[in-house]
Nucleic acid binder design. Structure first.
Length: 680
DNA sequence: CATTCGAGGACC
DNA sequence: GGTCCTAT
């Protein structure tokens, strides 16, 4: 094992070079055995360079299939597939044993597995109030609904959250998987178990930057670790192998040096692991670094959380490693219902034989282009390419590719807001639409789903407001086209409101064409935002003088616009429910600001007696005026009024009572290579 | 080989 | 605003 090398001034900053003294470690891969100091274990904000960083990825096994098994109370051993029209979209593991995989035809699947349980996803048709499971579904009349899976996904996520210490950061990455950052938690536990790690030696030159004492040699199997990826990885199967999805190392490893152990849920793995311990060399069998031990602690926690999730019917597979990319990769090492640790020192042998197109973001066009350019397929092949070379060919940003091939990934586990930013309903037409009436029909169906989902989401969070409605349509094999428009504030969205807005977009999109061949159509809410605290509802900002807002709003970066509505409610006589827009600096003088609608030219005034109306009536009235003035909240485009000193932070149009938004870019997921993607 | 539904981000 | 990209 590698004893920590002596004195370095600031090893935690060390970008310069791996400090490993172990000659057994692969020189292509740096920082596999970094020096870990007292500072490292005592600090909590070391970020992605933290040598004790521990990340996990956990995904649900055959999630849609599992959802249906839970819903129907199907035995866990029973083979089951989920059908979408005549396509299998999910296959549970019992069914996979029969050689059934996604993308097999239903007929073929039934031949392979006669007892196969087949469930069609929920669907609904025009007029249905909610999706359901029917005997016969017809793609000509019905639309698929994945809503049940979304709701189950939320349940699983909340069980994870409840089952883990609050210090674990969680990023829900998709409907069936999440990343976990255990770094902070694991340090706390390390300090509990090894209190001497908190005692910086007094008599040393480097103080807190002194390397930690050598870690205890612990047997993986005694740590409750169910699975550690071996230092030597069996080569992935080649083309010839008759193997379903060709998942990299998906099958049970057979080589004797594999450590398989414990709580494999009765998989028989225990016996196997203990069968031939003589085949293991010392490095395989024991932890050798503090990072190993940190990961084993994460494994304990992950294991417990997964057991909790299993109680509600979902088995999961997890990977634990030093970053997101490797955690994700490791999760697929052994499936289902299992977890794997990838130790730093196993990284080179794990990555070298890996087909690089398995790597996130390399699975698509970029990966294909790289494969063509160099006529190679594995990570090992690409290690020969220098950074300069790859940057010359693929641009500056491809340093990301260079690093990821070497097991480096700087991306962070970032908690996401619980509400999605968009909500989309789509329908693929087997028989293309040829006239406008059919278009309107499908828009109504899509609108019905959106209405249902938005209102449903508002039960949990009443302050959800979609900014826009977007209609996509694709004609034949041409690229799709889209149109969007602001969506009005309406508390109770109805199918009609969405559909009428959708119809307008449809007309814009297809123009005066009477002949059309639209093959896909989708409708989406985008820019969904949550109203600020204290501005819980439209009523909230209607009642008192809008002067209150000015105090809450940031004064520097933008000039706030407050919006009020003027509406008319026939049954209520007077047409003085008004909505206006006023500039912040004007409104202090008066509680009755006015605004002229950019589209219709009408001037509105704030009502004085608004609060005397019933809130139900207020809402209704508001809805009606909003429909007439759909673009009211874009009447003023603040982004056009640029102030030099804030030019880097571009204000966006704002709605009263909503969080301020800037256009500050979040981390690039595509690593700036989008330009390249579109090229080919 | 093709395929459905869906979410998010980047670019211009 | 619109288009294109990525995962399963």
């Amino acid at each position: 094992m590698a004893p920590n090398s002596p004195t370095r001034l600031h090893p935690w900053k060390g970008k310069e070079k791996a400090t490993s003294t172990s000659t057994s470690l692969d020189p292509e891969f740096v920082d596999l055995d970094p020096v870990i100091t007292y500072r490292h274990i005592l600090s909590n904000n070391l970020g992605v360079k933290d040598p004790l960083r521990v990340i996990a990825l956990c995904d649900s096994d055959a999630f849609y299939a599992a959802c249906e098994m839970v819903r129907l109370g199907v035995d866990k051993e029973e083979p089951l597939v989920v059908l979408q029209w005549d396509l299998l979209i999910a296959v549970n593991y019992p069914a996979r044993k029969y050689g059934v995989s996604r993308l097999t035809k239903l007929k073929e699947a039934l031949q392979k597995c006669p007892g196969l349980k087949v469930v069609h996803v929920a669907t609904f048709k025009e007029g249905d109030s909610e999706p359901g499971y029917w005997e016969n579904v017809d793609t000509k009349t019905h639309k698929v609904s994945l809503d049940y899976y979304r709701r189950e996904s939320v349940k699983v996520a909340s069980v994870f959250k409840e089952s883990l210490p609050a210090s674990v950061e969680i990023e829900k990455a998709s409907i069936d998987e999440a990343f976990f950052d255990y770094t902070k938690t694991v340090k706390e536990i390390l300090l509990q178990r090894y209190p001497y790690l908190a005692q910086v030696p007094k008599d040393v030159l480097d103080g807190i930057d002194t390397p930690l004492p050598p870690p205890p040699r612990l047997k993986w199997t005694d740590l409750g670790v169910s699975h550690a990826i071996p230092l030597t990885i069996p080569a992935p199967k080649e083309e010839g192998s008759e193997k379903g999805d060709g998942e990299y190392n998906d099958e049970k490893p057979e080589s004797p040096e594999v450590i398989v152990e414990k709580n494999g849920e009765g998989s028989g793995a225990v016996e196997k692991g203990n069968e031939d311990p003589g085949g293991l060399n010392e490095d395989e069998e024991y932890t050798t670094t503090w990072h190993d031990i940190a990961m084993s602690i994460a494994a304990e926690l992950m294991d417990k959380a997964r057991a909790k999730v299993k109680e509600i019917g979902y088995t999961t597979s997890a990977g634990i490693a030093r970053n997101k990319f490797l955690a994700k990769l490791s999760a697929s090492y052994k499936k289902p219902n299992s977890q794997s640790i990838l130790r730093n020192r196993a990284i080179p042998s794990y990555l070298r034989p890996l087909p690089f197109q398995k790597i996130r973001f390399l699975g698509g066009k970029l990966g294909t282009a790289i494969a063509k350019e160099y006529d190679v397929s594995t990570v090992g092949d690409l290690l020969a390419i220098s950074l300069e070379e790859i940057q010359r060919k693929f641009g500056e940003n491809s340093i990301w590719v260079y690093e990821v091939l070497r097991g480096i990934d700087r991306s962070e586990v970032k908690e996401k807001p619980s509400v999605n930013k968009s909500m989309l309903a789509a329908k693929n037409l087997s028989k293309p639409i040829t006239n406008a009436a059919e278009g309107h029909h499908w828009i109504r169906v899509l609108a019905a789903e959106l209405a249902l989902r938005l209102n449903e989401a508002r039960e949990a969070n009443p302050n959800l407001w979609p900014r826009s409605l977007v209609l996509h349509a694709r004609r034949g094999y041409e690229a799709g086209r889209s149109k969007q428009a602001p969506f009005p504030f309406v508390r109770k969205v109805s199918v009609d409101i969405i559909a009428s807005a959708g119809d307008r977009l449809w007309r814009e999109l297809v123009g005066s064409n009477t002949v059309m061949h639209v093959s896909t159509v989708s409708l989406a809410f985008t820019g969904i935002e949550v109203a600020e605290q204290g501005q819980k509802s439209i009523e909230g900002f209607l009642k008192p003088a809008s002067a209150d807002f000015s105090k809450k709003r940031p004064r520097d970066k933008e000039r706030s616009v407050s919006i009020d509505l003027e509406a008319e409610h026939s049954g209520f006589g007077k047409s003085d429910i008004t909505l206006g827009i006023s500039k912040q600096n004007h409104q202090s003088s008066s509680n009755v600001p006015s605004w002229t609608c950019a589209r219709c030219g009408k001037t509105f005034h704030l009502p004085e007696d608004l609060s005397s109306l019933d809130s139900d009536i207020q809402q209704e009235a508001l809805s009606s005026i909003q429909l007439e003035h759909q673009d009211f909240h874009f009447a003023e485009d603040l982004s056009k009024e640029s102030d030099d000193h804030v030019s880097s932070v571009k204000p966006t149009t704002k709605k009263v009572g909503f969080k301020s938004r800037t256009t500050k870019k979040s981390r690039k997921e595509t690593h700036g290579l989008d330009k390249y993607f579109t090229k080919k």
